[in-house]
Amino acid sequence: MPRKLFDREINDLIRRMTDLGNTVDGRVQTTIEALRTQDMEKAKWVAQNDNEIDSEEHAIEQTCMNLIALQQPIASDLRIIASCLKILTDMEREADQCADICDILMIANLDRNSLALSHVVQMLEAARAMFRDSIDVFLSRNVETARAICKADDNVDAMFSRIVLEVCNIITENPQNVMCDVDLIFITKYVERMADHATNIAEWVIYMETGEHPELNTK
């Protein structure tokens, strides 16, 4: 494959990755709206349309494999392709977490007026901000911004710990609704994982630029 054509294919890969990231971000936003308003139609849509993300993930994976097979990439090219494969997995899992949250939302009987639920929504908004930033930094490849995204995960982790303690206190005071409260803890854990995926993406961007893969998400 001529070098110019290879460069064009790499640029197209970056574009498709960015498009997928924006699509996943839309799922996160819809999940936030469904959780905040208990909108079951939105929750159902997110839960039932995860296959679209999976299909695009597989298509991009195949593109990456073809790029490796058609031309023996130089080191910088190989870093880009390898990083895209890793980032792709985190994007797909981000969408999976949205589907998982919406699956729970459709069967749980959460209290819309619960203060704990509002805190979970705030946590999800913070995780979404991290994910959006990770997509932006995938394009800019700004290492310092990528490190800042990883640092922001500390805030989401702190929110997670506070919410779990809050829900445990609710269970102690009002044990008859324990199953709903457990569902909320499951949702909170999924949100915490979403922030982890954003951190992973930022770490792989650092690898793309420096050749070093830092472990900035150490918990």
Rank of each mutant, 00 (worst) to 15 (best):
P175Q: 10
T31K: 05
D90A: 09
A75V: 08
N217M: 00
T172P: 00
S114L: 07
T188W: 02
R162T: 13
K44D: 07
N109P: 10
I185C: 07
D196I: 06
R147W: 01
N174I: 06
A43P: 01
N49F: 03
L20A: 03
N109A: 14
I74E: 06
N169P: 00
I149M: 06
M106Q: 15
N11F: 01
E192F: 01
L139F: 00
D19C: 08
R16C: 03
S140K: 12
T172E: 03
D183M: 05
L184Q: 02
H119E: 14
E61I: 10
I53Q: 04
L165F: 11
M17G: 14
D103E: 14
S161A: 08
E56Q: 15
E52K: 08
F138T: 05
E209R: 06
V137L: 08
Q38C: 07
G21L: 08
S140E: 14
F131G: 10
A158R: 13
Q38G: 05
C150S: 11
Q72R: 05
V137R: 13
S140L: 11
I81F: 13
R27V: 02
V164I: 08
K219H: 04
M194S: 10
L85Y: 01
E192C: 06
D111P: 03
N49D: 07
V28N: 12
E125P: 05
R93W: 00
D136W: 00
D157I: 11
L105K: 04
C84F: 04
T199H: 04
Y207S: 05
R3L: 03
I170T: 13
D103Q: 15
V191G: 07
V182R: 13
E57S: 02
L124A: 12
M106C: 14
E212C: 00
L67P: 08
E57Y: 02
P73R: 01
N22D: 15
Q48H: 07
A69W: 11
A99K: 08
Q97N: 13
D50S: 03
R15F: 08
V120S: 13
A198G: 14
C64D: 08
L5F: 07
K4D: 14
L184P: 10
A198E: 13
L88K: 07
N51Q: 15
A82G: 15
G26V: 07
L115H: 12
D196R: 07
M91K: 09
D90K: 04
I170M: 15
A75S: 12
D77I: 10
I171V: 11
F160R: 11
V156C: 06
A198H: 13
L35K: 06
T199Q: 13
G21D: 05
I163A: 10
M130E: 13
F138S: 04
A47G: 06
E41V: 02
I10E: 12
N174M: 09
A34R: 02
F186R: 09
